[in-house]
């Protein structure tokens, strides 16, 4: 019983992280049909920032990592994606692959191939006793962090004019522009929010691992993309739900698969994904929409 609850809490936390990562991808996709694989390198940049500046205190290090993530995200849009507005989702995805590999090499050049380490928020690595059940402090923190971010995002999207503009653009970019919503404004906003979410993901992952290397963000991004696609990447809530599901399933498999099979947990998740795509492809396909880009 105790073990079940522990694994459930861990799985919810893993789902929360992956949900945030998938949301980072889904927010941008909704507006410009870009499934940004290089979101992983935004996460990596935020992780390097945390690890390299942790000495200065968390209250400096965390803001730095958020700022770095937002700037890199906006820079990607300005330097690369804004020049590719007339291309379809497939081309944009491939371009983001290229950008991802390029940035990994850049990180390697700057920081070397070896991992950099720092004990990020080591206090969270302990477990706590809640009503007689021992749970990871980090899992609880992750769940709270994700909940706070999601509530804040939801309030932003529904209660502010800028948030409504983003929501409208994500639903129907062409009409949003005809109504007078500036394309540059909502695109920039989606990349900035994506950066903030990536920084949150980086925080949780660096607390877990205490280390960062050039390809730090790749695995979670693959899983997040998969999650976003099964959930329905063209809807913000779809990405979030799909990401959560994949994270939750991966974590549960890690807890309950026999020892000798845990290395294959990702493989099991992908089998699950293939099954979902086979049996319910209709609700999961991306609706192709013409997007006016000038």
């Amino acid at each position: 019983m105790n073990q079940l609850i522990q694994s459930l809490v861990d799985a919810i936390s893993a789902g929360a992280v992956l949900g945030l990562a998938a949301l980072a991808i889904g927010l941008v996709f909704g507006v410009i049909r870009l499934a940004n694989f290089a979101t992983g390198e935004i996460i990596t940049a935020a992780a390097y920032s945390l690890i390299l500046t942790w000495d200065l205190g968390w209250y400096i290090s965390i803001p730095i990592s958020i700022i770095v993530a937002v700037l890199i995200s906006l820079l990607m849009e300005l330097a690369v994606f804004s020049r590719m507005r007339n291309h379809g989702p497939a081309t944009l995805l491939i371009a983001s692959f290229g950008l991802s590999f390029l940035l990994q090499r850049v990180y390697e050049l700057i920081f070397g191939n070896n991992v950099r380490t720092a004990p990020i928020a080591s206090g969270l690595a302990q477990s706590v006793d809640i009503g007689g059940i021992r749970v990871q402090m980090l899992s609880v923190t992750t769940i709270v962090l994700a909940a706070v971010l999601l509530i804040a995002l939801q309030l932003f999207l529904t209660k502010t004019s800028l948030g409504l503009q983003l929501k409208a653009a994500a639903a129907d970019f062409k009409t949003a522009r005809l109504v007078g919503i500036p394309a540059g404004r909502v695109i920039g906003l989606s990349f900035a929010l994506s950066g903030i979410l990536a920084a949150a993901v980086a925080f949780v992952l660096t607390v877990q691992s205490g280390a960062v290397g050039p390809s730090f963000g790749v695995r979670i991004t693959i899983l997040a993309l998969v999650g976003a696609v099964i959930g329905g990447i063209d809807k913000i809530s779809g990405s979030l739900a799909g990401g959560f599901l994949v994270g939750f399933a991966t974590s549960m498999l890690a807890s309950w698969l026999p020892q000798e099979m845990t290395n294959f947990k990702d493989a099991f998740v992908f089998v699950l994904v293939i099954a979902v795509l086979l049996f319910k492809p209709s609700g999961l396909l991306i609706k192709g929409r013409g997007v006016v880009r000038t």
């Binding site: 004019s161 409504l164 503009q165 929501k167 409208a168 639903a171 129907d172 009409t175 949003a176 005809l178 109504v179 007078g180 919503i181």
Partner: peptide
């Protein structure tokens, strides 16, 4: 092409952005 997932009022609010 109204924004189907937004309320009637929010649709009108968005019209006023310009």
């Amino acid at each position: 092409h109204v924004f189907t997932e937004l309320s009637v009022m929010d649709n009108l609010r968005l019209g006023a952005v310009a």
